[in-house]
């Protein structure tokens, strides 16, 4: 029993430390690659396309629904407490910029891209393709991890911006249809509480989440064991661990950025 607890603890620490170790190695390799101009441009473009462009429809659709719900909820709460909903645009925009857009985008990216990365690398591991790469003297970090990192960071930032624009458009439409707002009136009060620092903080979060997803997923994929069952478990583990990491990172970043 005691051995089991120690094993769980060890696995927990390993799950926490392995992505950090891989991140440190990738940073070193990335600097080395940039200095030697040895970036895999084609692979990076492929990953950007896979992560960002193919994720665009699902993320925009989800953010449309989320912003629709948030604006209606805000309106209901404000009417309940303040007997008016004049501040809805300002408050909803702050929430979107600081939290909803980066976090929801990252969660959706995790479920779509993170699982894909873990499954892909896991399959490569169990079919011994990674060993073949080693035989060809190709660094797996340089060829597999860094393009996915760049692709995920790019996807996270661009899709966060796209989510924000989508949420503004949807909120304006909802407000003018159901809340007796004129579109220009809604736009005027949109940025009342949002500061440049909020946008910067939101984009910093997007960068951090875009970094967490590939490293956690790559670790899960590269540590995959067994056959197809192991690949499935790696994909599941990648999504769960990435989501947990994102939630913790979101809490710490919010505390660091806006509480002090």
């Amino acid at each position: 029993m005691r051995n089991n607890e120690q094993r769980v603890l060890f696995l927990g620490f390993e799950a926490l430390l392995s992505p950090i170790r891989l991140f440190a190695t990738s940073c070193r390799v990335l600097v080395f690659s940039i200095v030697n101009i040895r970036l895999h441009g084609r692979e990076i473009t492929n990953q950007m396309f896979e992560s960002a462009v193919l994720s665009l429809p699902i993320i925009l659709f989800s953010l449309t629904i989320v912003s629709l719900m948030s604006i209606l909820e805000f309106s209901w709460h404000m009417k309940l407490v303040l007997k008016q909903d004049a501040l809805v645009p300002g408050f909803s925009m702050v929430l979107m910029v600081r939290e909803v857009a980066p976090v929801v985008t990252a969660m959706l990216l995790t479920s779509r891209v993170g699982a894909s990365i873990a499954a892909e690398l896991g399959f490569m591991k169990v079919t011994e393709q990674l060993d073949q790469l080693k035989l060809l003297s190709v660094s797996e970090v340089e060829y597999l991890v860094i393009p996915r990192w760049v692709g995920c960071v790019f996807a996270s930032i661009t899709l966060t911006l796209a989510s924000l624009v989508t949420s503004i458009c949807v909120s304006t439409g909802i407000a003018s249809r159901f809340m007796n707002y004129q579109p220009h009136e809604f736009f005027n009060t949109l940025f009342v509480f949002t500061k440049a620092f909020d946008l910067g903080g939101g984009l910093l979060k997007a960068f951090c989440f875009g970094t967490i997803i590939p490293f956690v997923s790559c670790v899960c994929g590269l540590s995959c064991q067994g056959g197809s069952r192991g690949v499935g478990q790696a994909a599941t583990r990648a999504v769960v661990q990435s989501c947990l990491f994102i939630i913790f990172a979101d809490f710490f970043l919010s505390y660091w950025l806006w509480t002090f």
């Binding site: 462009v53 665009l56 661009t158 911006l161 796209a162 940025f191 949002t194």
Partner: peptide, 24 residues
């Protein structure tokens, strides 16, 4: 793929510009 990625980069830069304009 390069076209789509490039388009997304341009659109994102446009969005960022619009936000910084909106935020003053």
């Amino acid at each position: 793929k390069q076209f789509w990625v490039g388009s997304l980069v341009l659109i994102s830069v446009g969005f960022l510009f619009a936000f910084t304009w909106g935020l003053g």
